[in-house]
Design a protein around this nucleic acid. Structure first.
Lengths: 352, 352
DNA sequence: CGTTAGCACTCATTCTTTCCGAGTGCTAAT
DNA sequence: ATTAGCACTCGGAAAGAATGAGTGCTAACG
C-alpha cells in the first residue's frame, strides 16, 4: 500500500478535526470539506487503507477514526500547517513577559507559569544541571557590630553571601588572614573536593579565626551544591480539567500526582543538546506515566550560562502547530529580552 | 427551643458522619450508634428541631440531613473531639521536614507542599508583608578583571549582591568615593524615598563613577521592593479531585483557577495577629470564591523574623479536628526546628 | 479501474420508563 | 416524653427502546 497525496490530505484533515473536537472523525465530515473533492464512500476506502497502514484507529466498529501515534507522528513531521501567531497573541505574550520576569530570582517558576498560561496546558521548566561549580573567590567584609559578611563567588559567576557573627576574640586583622587562607586553599575546588582533610588544613592556618572555619566551609559547600542542582517547576496542572479526555477527574489526578517534579527532573536527559524542538507522542515517552500523553519540549537560554528546558504536557491530540509556534516564539522573546536588556546602560551582571 | 445535651450529641454524630461519608445522614444511622440510646423516631424529632434551629439542612424532602454552616461552627467551637496524631503520622512528618527543608531559599514553597501532602488538601503559605525596609549599608568590593561586587544590606539584615562591570575610566579610588557617597546619602531610606531628586544628588557627588549610579540605585530599589513583597505559594490543588464534592472537574477547576496566588495574597489580612488557629466556614469567608469551602489557617514562625501564614482549603465538611491537629503540630515542629538548628555551632545568620 | 450510490448492520449514546428504598412527618399507642 | 407504625416523597439506579452516526460491502457507473 502506498501513500498517495490524497491519503495525506485526508489524514491531515482527520487529525485537524480530531485535534479540534476530540471526537472520532467520520467519512462524511471529511468528504464535505471544501478541499476534498470526492464522495464519502471514497473517503471511507481511503480511511480503511490508512487504518491498515497504521495511521488511524477505530475506537469501535461503528465509530469514526482516531489518529494513532504513528498518525500523529506523520502529521507532525510532514502534514501539519504552520500556525501563525496573531498580533494579539504576540502582544499579550510580550506584556506578560515584561510584567512577570521582573524577579530574576525564580525564573523557572515564572517561565513555567507563563508557558502554561500561553498554551492552556500544564507546563514545566527545568534548568539543566550545570557542570560542577568551584569556588572562585572569598571575601570577608566587616559589617557593623561584631558581624561580617561572607561572600562566595563561584565559577559560574554567581555570588552568594551571608551575615556571620564574629567571635569576640577576633578582629579585622584575623579576618584578613582568614580570607587569604581561604582564597589560597579552597579556590578551584568543587563541593566534593572540600574534604575534612582540606578543612583541617585550613583550620590549622587560620589563626585566631579558626572557629569560623566550619561555618564558612559549610556555607561554601552549601552554595556549591545548590548551584549544581537543577531546579524544576511545574504549573498549570488544572488546565487538564477542561480537556474532554480528563472528564474523569481520577484520570487527571492520577496523571498529575504521578507527574510531579521528580519525574520531570528526569525528562531532560532525553533531549539531545542539538535538537531544537522535540515532540514525544504517547508511547514514545519513556516515562510510563506519560504513555497516554504527549510532551512538547524545547531549550531556552537566558542570561549568561543559564539554560534549561521548557516543556508542555497534554493529550496526544494537542494542537501541536499552535503549541510549537507559541513555544518557540516564547523562547526567542525570552533570549532576546536577556540579550538586550531594556536598559542598555546596564552592565552585564548576574544577580546574587 | 433550647439546646439540650442530647441534641448536641446528635449534632456531633451527624457532623462526624457527614465528614466521613459526604452523604446526607438519616435518623436510622444515628439511632443505631452505640452511644445514642433512643429510637430513630426520637432522633427524627431532634433532627427536626436542629433543622429549625438552623444547624442542619435538608438537600430535599426525602433525604437525610446535612450540617449547615452554623452547624459546623458549633461543631468546631464546642462539639468536636480532639484528633490524636498517631506515632506514624508524627514520624512521617518529621521525616519530610528533615528531608525537605534543606533549602532555606524557598521555604514558602516547601512548606505549602508539605502541608498539602499532610492534609490531602490544597494548602498555601504566605509570608506576612514586612515593614518597609531601608538600606543599611553599601559595600563595593573589587573583584577580578574590571568588575566589582555591589553589596546591599537592608534593615532586615538581608544581604543581596550583584556583580557589576566597572567602567574603564574608573579605579578603586573612585569606587571608595562612590561607596562613601552612597552610604552617606541613601542609608535609612525606603524604596519610595529614593526619588529622582535624591539620585541626582548622588550622581553629582559621585565623581568619576557617576555612570554607575543608575545601575546601583536601580538594583537597590529592586532589592528593597522584593524585600517588602510578601511571597505566596499554593500547592496540592489536585487533592481536590479525590473529594466527592468535586466529582465535576469543572467545579474544581473553577475554584482553583479563581483561587490563585492573587486571592491568597489578600487572605492574611483577615486573621488577627493574636489568634492562633482560625477556621472560616463557607460563607464566613469574605472572598466570594471561597463561599462554598472552608479555610483553616494559622501562623508560623521560623528563623529570626521570618513569619507567615499557612492555610488549608477544602470542602466545608473537611475533617477539622484532623486538619487542625496536624497543622498545629507542623507549625510547632517547624519553629522548634529553627529554634535549635541541627548544627549548634552555627552562629546566627541570615541567608543571602 | 477508480469512484460512487445504496444498503444492511453495528453499537455507543440518549431518552423514557419503571422501580426501589432510604428517609421523612405525622398520628396514635405506650 | 418516647416509640411503633404508616403513608408519602423523591432522587437515583436499572432496564429497555429509540436514535443515528458510522462502517463495510456490493454493484453500478463513467
Amino acid at each position: 500500500m502506498e501513500m498517495t497525496e490524497r491519503k495525506k490530505k485526508i489524514l491531515r484533515a482527520i487529525v485537524d478535526s480530531y485535534i479540534r473536537t476530540a471526537e472520532p472523525v467520520g467519512s462524511k465530515a471529511i468528504a464535505s470539506l471544501p478541499d476534498i473533492a470526492t464522495s464519502s464512500a471514497t473517503v471511507r476506502n481511503e480511511m480503511s487503507d490508512l487504518t491498515e497502514m497504521g495511521y488511524l484507529e477505530q475506537p469501535h466498529t461503528s465509530a469514526g477514526r482516531v489518529p494513532s501515534p504513528a498518525g500523529y507522528r506523520l502529521y507532525i513531521d510532514e502534514l501539519m500547517q504552520d500556525y501563525r501567531l496573531s498580533v494579539d497573541e504576540t502582544q499579550a505574550m510580550h506584556q506578560t513577559l515584561e510584567g512577570k520576569i521582573r524577579e530574576f530570582d525564580d525564573v523557572i517558576a515564572q517561565v513555567s507559569k507563563i508557558v502554561s498560561k500561553m498554551t492552556n496546558l500544564p507546563a514545566y521548566a527545568v534548568t539543566s544541571p550545570k557542570v560542577q561549580p568551584t569556588v572562585k573567590k572569598f571575601e570577608l567584609i566587616m559589617a557593623e557590630s561584631g558581624t561580617f559578611i561572607l561572600v562566595v563567588m563561584t565559577s559560574n559567576d554567581t555570588v552568594k553571601n551571608r551575615l556571620v557573627r564574629l567571635p569576640v576574640d577576633c578582629d579585622e586583622q584575623d579576618l584578613k588572614l582568614l580570607s587569604a587562607v581561604l582564597n589560597a586553599t579552597l579556590t578551584g575546588l568543587t563541593a566534593d573536593e572540600i574534604t575534612p582533610d582540606v578543612m583541617a588544613r585550613v583550620t590549622r592556618s587560620a589563626g585566631a579565626a579558626a572557629s569560623l572555619v566550619p561555618v564558612i566551609v559549610d556555607y561554601t559547600v552549601h552554595v556549591l551544591q545548590s548551584e549544581s542542582h537543577s531546579e524544576v517547576s511545574l504549573s498549570g496542572q488544572m488546565n487538564l480539567l477542561s480537556l474532554p479526555e480528563y472528564r474523569d477527574p481520577q484520570k487527571a489526578q492520577q496523571l498529575m500526582t504521578q507527574l510531579d517534579e521528580d519525574v520531570i527532573g528526569n525528562l531532560p536527559a532525553v533531549i539531545g543538546p542539538d535538537s531544537k524542538m522535540q515532540i514525544l507522542i504517547g508511547p514514545e515517552n519513556i516515562a510510563q506515566e506519560l504513555k497516554d500523553t504527549s510532551v512538547v519540549m524545547t531549550r531556552f537560554d537566558i542570561g549568561d550560562g543559564m539554560q534549561g528546558m521548557i516543556g508542555v504536557v497534554g493529550p496526544t491530540r494537542m494542537d501541536y502547530a499552535q503549541v510549537t509556534a507559541r513555544l518557540s516564539y516564547f523562547t526567542e522573546s525570552l533570549s532576546k529580552m536577556f540579550a538586550k536588556p531594556e536598559k542598555p546602560e546596564l552592565p552585564e551582571a548576574k544577580e546574587e
